[in-house]
């Protein structure tokens, strides 16, 4: 029964901020192990969509289901538990500046999950190892490169054992030579079966890993389909957008 039920389902979500419709009746669903990629012009509602998925922003209408459970029906406390199960990665990392890399990963284990310090730190080291940063555990965010910061933030999310991950343009704030190391970690995660919804401009990368591209514009899903909708001559808005992006980036 649970085989047929999507792991994460976004159902008719709308969001209006200051009278402006940011999200307009967006629906999508992810099966276990899916990586779906949201692309589209800036201001199209990608970030708002991701923040509505874990109810960081409460949608004005519509609902989100994780493993069949409605987020809208949850109490405040349950929403916090619901968020623990959905890892989130931000464009500008949002590491906690007063904590070293290890403690950035460990703090939520201690203060949210109530784990003992020693255990939380052990787990944090294991996660840093996984993203290749065990040797940087003692450094503070200001002492890490952008790519390293994003990998720490991936470790921080993974330590919570999430059922799914939301990635909001994880490489947009990175220097081009640092993008690879972050994308590598994300690719590995996807191959290991993590369910992910990612907003990105890394179209080349997205095309290789995903089954479905979701093209958003003006708060609506304009087009959704396999990566080939991005190819020149695809005819749709997604292909047009890609062609423009290729002109700019030369890719």
């Amino acid at each position: 029964m649970s085989e047929t039920r999507p792991l994460l389902e976004v159902s008719h979500v709308s969001r209006v901020i200051d009278g402006k419709t940011i999200l307009d009746d967006v629906s999508l669903s992810l099966e276990r192990g899916d990586l779906k990629v949201v692309i589209g012009p800036s201001g199209g509602g990608k970030s708002t969509l991701l923040q509505c998925v874990n109810f960081l922003q409460v949608p004005d209408s519509g609902d989100v289901f994780l493993d069949g459970q409605s987020a809208r029906e949850m109490s405040r406390r349950n929403i916090c538990e619901f968020r623990q199960k959905i890892g989130m990665i931000f464009q500008d990392f949002n590491l906690f500046d007063h904590l070293c890399a290890r403690d950035n990963v460990a703090i939520a284990l201690q203060k949210v999950k109530g784990q003992k310090k020693a255990l939380a730190r052990q787990r944090a080291m294991a996660e840093l190892e996984r993203v290749g940063l065990a040797d940087k555990a003692a450094l503070y965010p200001s002492q890490l490169s952008g790519g390293q910061k994003q990998r720490v933030s991936l470790a921080r999310a993974l330590a919570m054992d999430p059922m799914a991950m939301l990635l909001d343009e994880p490489t947009s704030a990175l220097d081009p030579e640092l993008i690879g190391e972050v994308l590598n970690v994300i690719a590995q995660l996807s191959l290991s079966g993590m369910t992910m919804l990612m907003a990105t401009h890394q179209i080349g990368f997205a095309r290789h890993l995903t089954k479905e591209i979701i093209f958003m514009e003006a708060g609506r899903v304009v087009e959704a389909g396999p990566p080939k909708i991005l190819e020149p001559g695809g005819g749709g808005r997604a292909a047009e957008f890609c062609a423009k992006l290729a002109q700019v980036t030369g890719r």
Binding site: G87, F93, A108
Partner: peptide, 23 residues
């Protein structure tokens, strides 16, 4: 402080009070 840190803490499952206190 950058507002993103509060949001990141909330995304990890911190309550508003917890995020304010620990982050």
């Amino acid at each position: 402080l950058p507002p993103g840190q509060f949001m990141a803490a909330r995304a990890l499952g911190f309550t508003r009070l917890g995020a304010a206190r620990h982050v």
